[in-house]
């Protein structure tokens, strides 16, 4: 009896905390489809704010998606091989590089952005193009991809598997494609989701690196909060959440290290 009362108290408290966190988001999303926020829901529901957001900020949404996809491609091309090389090398240098990889996570985005501007800001075409933001994003997300793939690589004896494949006549690229990549799938998938999510939601770096013509979604969001009606900002939030929530949920499903291990052995 006594234990169950404690249980219900706990449950109530947990629900309360959840409500405290979720209600504002829910209200904000609701505000985005309310005719007049100050009159409340009585004033009726409308999609016109969402449509207006679309007409004003569609290009930021597309740019965000473009950067996220490009960032993912860069991560796959650089991060996966880099993780493989780091996992293969056992020397002190490799361990040091591995440690340094966490640095971009620890350094505030603003500092990275500043460093980029100081270093490459002078190259005008580069500075003005979206590629400038892309470089920032890749720098910021690469450690996540590398760590994710490294974690999977250290969870199985890939060296011996490779030796097995080599004994059967497979050269390096064949082994990489047929053994390493498929067995790292879970890590690559988790890393990819992380990279895309981080890239779509990234604000600090992007805010520093953007130009009026290269605004991403979060930057546009800040812009709309600062200068637009509250309903538009809220509608924008709604759009943002609809984009990023599925990614976050997928990340939860694949991103956990334990889940990563079982997905290796699970049949497709």
């Amino acid at each position: 009896m006594k234990r169950s009362r404690i249980f219900y108290v706990n449950l109530a408290f947990t629900l309360l905390v959840c409500a405290f966190l979720i209600v504002p988001i829910f209200l904000s999303m609701l505000a985005g489809v309310t005719v007049n926020f100050f009159q409340g829901i009585k004033s009726g529901l409308t999609l016109s704010w969402v449509i207006e957001v679309w007409s004003l900020y569609a290009d930021t949404i597309f740019l965000s998606l473009l950067i996220a996809v490009a960032c993912l491609i860069c991560n796959l091309l650089i991060g996966v091989p880099a993780a493989y090389v780091l996992a293969r090398k056992s020397g002190r240098v490799a361990r040091m590089i591995e440690e340094t990889l966490v640095l971009p996570i620890a350094i505030p985005g603003l500092a990275i952005a500043l460093a980029l501007i100081v270093t490459y800001g002078g190259i005008r075409e580069f500075r003005l193009s979206w590629l400038f933001i892309l470089v920032g994003h890749v720098l910021y997300t690469l450690p996540f991809m590398i760590r994710s793939v490294l974690a999977v690589l250290s969870s199985f004896d890939f060296r011996t598997l490779e030796e097995g494949a080599a004994s059967l006549g497979a050269g390096f690229w064949k082994r990489f494609r047929t053994i390493i990549i498929p067995n790292c799938r879970a890590g690559i998938l988790a890393g990819s989701l992380m990279v895309v999510t981080l890239s779509v939601g990234e604000f600090n770096l992007t805010w520093m690196l953007h130009t009026p013509l290269t605004k991403t979604l979060p930057v546009g969001l800040a812009d709309s909060y600062a200068s637009m009606r509250l309903e538009i900002g809220s509608a924008y939030t709604l759009v943002f959440l609809i984009m990023i929530l599925p990614l976050l949920i997928a990340l939860q499903l694949y991103g956990r290290p334990r889940a990563a291990k079982t997905t290796i052995s699970d049949p497709e």
């Binding site: 011996t160 097995g164 053994i179």
Partner: peptide, 11 residues
């Protein structure tokens, strides 16, 4: 070659 750990491909 037959390895002690078999080195079979889990994928």
């Amino acid at each position: 070659m037959v390895f002690q750990s078999y080195a079979l491909f889990p994928n």
